[in-house]
Design a protein around this nucleic acid. Sequence first.
DNA 1: AAAAAAATTTAGATTTGACTAAAATAATTT
DNA 2: AAATTATTTTAGTCAAATCTAAATTTTTTT
Lengths: 219, 219
Amino acid sequence: MKLSESEENYIKSIYKLQANTKKVNTNSLAGHLNTKAASVTDMLKKLKSKKILEYERYYGFRLNETGNKEALKIIRRHRLWEFFLVSKLGMAWDKVHAIAEELEHVSSLELVKKLDEYLGRPKLDPHGDPIPDEKGEMPELKQVALNLFPFKKNGIVSSISNQTSEMMKMLDHYGIGIGSQIKVLKTFDFDGSLQVKISKQPACVISSGFAQNIFVYDD
Amino acid sequence: MKLSESEENYIKSIYKLQANTKKVNTNSLAGHLNTKAASVTDMLKKLKSKKILEYERYYGFRLNETGNKEALKIIRRHRLWEFFLVSKLGMAWDKVHAIAEELEHVSSLELVKKLDEYLGRPKLDPHGDPIPDEKGEMPELKQVALNLFPFKKNGIVSSISNQTSEMMKMLDHYGIGIGSQIKVLKTFDFDGSLQVKISKQPACVISSGFAQNIFVYDD
DNA sequence: AAAAAAATTTAGATTTGACTAAAATAATTT
DNA sequence: AAATTATTTTAGTCAAATCTAAATTTTTTT
């Protein structure tokens, strides 16, 4: 299905709004997209005619199966790009959203597939939101601060909640970045510090305060 | 300067055409952009009013200083993305142009800067075309097949002119990829094979046929 | 259940970019 | 240098996506 940038933005917003309410209404979508209700109505007709949307006038709307699949593809691209921008380019996680909003509309299947592989098939984006897989399945995972992560489990670093340069220096020193493998071996009750193993490096000890800012999910 | 996708495509095409002829004419631009002369005229007026274009009706046109700078920015983005797609995602060099045509319109300055750094500030794209630097300067470099590259000079691999899986296997074996450092130590006249040093690996010998497909530029 | 308020849709305009057909201008040929 | 041909521009449409203002439908209030 070939979709315009605008259609894709509508689909994405409807997808997000319909998670909360059974039927989405025109005004809330207009609010979400920063546009006017009349413009929304126009687009709803178009999406209905493209058989992406269940829509009866005056009664609200929601995406059908096809629409949901399209939404998941767009969200997948968005989150993969966010992951790329943070983990590879080292951009701050609060700056990547706007750029990913543009990149997500480049829809080459091969590109998305190769990008996913290159990034190591990440499951969560840097905000901790799940990245739908190729089939549109959402991994049911949550990220947890490293100090709350269970012992001896393989974790993957999904985000860092402190983007200061001091934090960066420490991350760099320990060789920790988005996507790194990490395992907690034990904790010391005295000051809450943790012994951890990072990828293939020898085990080391990190402070509790440091660990609180490192978010991890179950591999 | 904020430019629409369409405006950017016009600017890019004018830039390319004006390299050959002093003044660009409407029909050739229409041909280049796969559109009609009348549409071109409309856009010329717009670009003139945006003070990007020197244009007198019926007499041809060319970009002014501002226009040239904008063109170079777009070309820079295009070629950096092509480099990314080939060197990092491993896409075939004849497939990346179409995708880069879309990616090039994402114009965040920070994105371009970080991408450039991440890629190691490449000077040529995978087709051997120069990548303008941040200031819009075009490096004056040409790629040469490795078998014709001078001895003992540091070269950077810029493209591979044979994208078969057999070739890929060999490249992989030798640890050669787009962006690799390479130096020719000597050649053997008997069969034209070359002793080369690749990045920090120990020197090794490669066949002349292999070297003919590896393009390199002077570092 | 009628009136008032809120939400939604329609009608008509606007902008961007493209198109066709006709008119204007430039270049070429005789 | 006049006529023909080629190129370019103008005039008028069209489609996508937006908007405002008015009309319609639903919901809420009295």
